[in-house]
Amino acid sequence: KKYKIKVYVKDKKTKKWKKIKEIEVDTKEEALEAIKKLPPNYEVKIVP
């Protein structure tokens, strides 16, 4: 079972969220580790 991490950042001009990358991992633990490495201003969604 794979997890997709969708990473969004808020556009300063439009104030809208835009997706900047998608990370695919195998476990939820890996997903949480990957999220920890991202800057705090990123919004993250984990999709099972």
Rank of each mutant, 00 (worst) to 15 (best):
K2I: 06
L38E: 02
K1S: 13
E30D: 08
K15L: 08
V7N: 00
K1L: 12
E22G: 01
I46P: 01
K19R: 04
E24I: 13
K37P: 03
N41T: 11
K19S: 03
P40F: 08
K16E: 05
P39A: 09
Y3S: 01
V9C: 05
K10G: 02
K28F: 15
V9S: 06
Y42V: 13
Y3N: 00
L38C: 05
E29H: 07
E43M: 15
K2M: 09
L32W: 14
E24Q: 09
V44Y: 14
V47C: 10
L38Y: 12
T27I: 02
V25H: 03
W17G: 01
T27F: 04
V47E: 11
L38R: 02
I20Y: 07
K36M: 11
K21C: 14
V7Y: 05
K2T: 08
K1V: 14
K10C: 10
K12W: 11
K10Y: 15
A34C: 12
A31E: 02
V25C: 11
V25L: 05
A34F: 15
W17I: 02
I23N: 01
T27A: 02
E22L: 04
N41L: 10
K1T: 12
I23M: 11
T14G: 07
K13M: 08
V7P: 00
K1N: 09
K2Y: 09
N41I: 11
P48Y: 12
D26N: 12
K12A: 11
D11A: 05
K36T: 08
K2L: 10
K6W: 14
V7I: 12
K21E: 11
P40C: 11
K45F: 13
V44R: 02
I5Q: 00
T27D: 05
A31S: 03
L38W: 12
Y8D: 00
Y42P: 02
Y42H: 08
A31M: 14
K45N: 06
I20D: 01
K12Q: 12
K12N: 11
K37A: 14
K37S: 13
Y42L: 10
P39W: 12
T27N: 08
K13F: 10
V47G: 05
E30N: 04
T27K: 02
I20E: 02
V25T: 06
V44K: 03
I46D: 01
K16W: 05
D11I: 06
Y3A: 01
W17S: 01
D26H: 09
K16P: 00
I20S: 02
I20R: 03
K37E: 09
K1E: 09
K15P: 02
I5H: 00
P39N: 11
K2P: 06
V7S: 01
E22K: 01
T27G: 07
A31T: 04
E30T: 03
K13S: 07
E29Q: 12
K16L: 07
T27H: 03
V7Q: 00
L32N: 07
E22D: 06
